[in-house]
């Protein structure tokens, strides 16, 4: 990575106008995955002086600034008590502690990394992304948004649904990328299932969810839902895991997860 200028933005407006001065300008969050690219930048724009590092506990939702680090997020009592703690749990699976002291919630989501544990953990909840210039989009919509989004991610809000959640990251060693992510929640009497790192970015298993919505949830329905989930999403091989094994794992953990949240 080569960088000509490093700039601390004084306001979101300032950051936004700087960003659009050149297509070689970019926002830097934690900057961890950025390091691995061979990109050349004119100006990296740092948002850390804009107060985007707070977690606010509001009546119906929790609002998390984009510059909140993964470590601050997982450690926050508000997040830990939110939705049976599953979001904190998902974030804690990312690399080591030092890494999580640097990586941010905003960077983890905005990059839409296919291996993201953060996205996999949040996607089964009611999560909205807030941008500058002012715009709001659900996490699910953002993941399917075509092309690079033009605005700056400033906050995310997580609805307090009193959800019950389950999160499983399958990995070889503790510092490994996920071989597969399985997340499940039950909120407002509806079951949500998502699979990430198949190796594609996490996605909801809408057909399986629909099936569970329409049928009494017993052992048979759980088995059936796990089958449907694996049929509706795409899986493929990676260097260290086959498509077939991914599917076998997904079925087992969907069944286990559903039983846990019921």
């Amino acid at each position: 990575m080569r960088v000509k200028n490093y700039y601390y933005a004084s306001s979101l407006e300032d950051a936004f106008s700087r960003l659009h001065e050149s297509n070689k300008n970019a926002i830097i969050a934690g900057g961890l995955w950025m390091k691995k690219t061979a990109q050349e930048y004119d100006t990296l724009i740092d948002l850390s002086k804009l107060g985007l590092d707070k977690i606010e506990d509001k009546k119906d939702e929790v609002v998390v600034g984009a510059m909140v680090t993964l470590r601050e997020f997982e450690h926050s009592p508000v997040i830990q008590s939110l939705n049976s703690g599953m979001t904190a749990f998902a974030v804690r699976e990312v690399m080591g502690l030092q890494f999580r002291n640097m990586a941010t919630i905003g960077g983890s989501i905005f990059g839409r990394y296919p291996f993201s544990d953060v996205i996999a953990g949040l996607i089964v909840l009611d999560v909205a992304l807030h941008f500058y210039p002012e715009a709001k989009m659900s996490l699910v919509d953002y993941l399917s948004y075509k092309g690079k989004y033009d605005g700056i991610l400033t906050h995310i809000s997580i609805k307090k649904d009193n959800a019950k959640g389950y999160f499983k990251k399958v990995k070889a060693t503790a510092l490994d990328f996920p071989l597969l992510n399985i997340s499940i929640s039950k909120r407002n009497n509806k079951l949500y299932i998502a699979l990430g790192s198949r190796p594609m970015t996490a996605a909801l298993c809408l057909k399986a969810m629909d099936y569970l919505d329409k049928n009494p949830v017993d052992d048979e329905a759980i088995n059936k839902a796990s089958e449907i989930a694996c049929e509706e999403l795409m899986f493929s091989d990676s260097t260290n895991i086959s498509k077939e094994y991914r599917i076998d794992l997904a079925k087992v953990y969907i069944r286990r997860g559903l039983k846990e949240v019921l």
């Binding site: 070889a172 060693t173 503790a174 510092l175 490994d176 990328f177 260097t239």
Partner: peptide
């Protein structure tokens, strides 16, 4: 080390 897994 991201792709070659030493035991932790």
């Amino acid at each position: 080390f991201l792709y070659y897994h030493l035991p932790t």
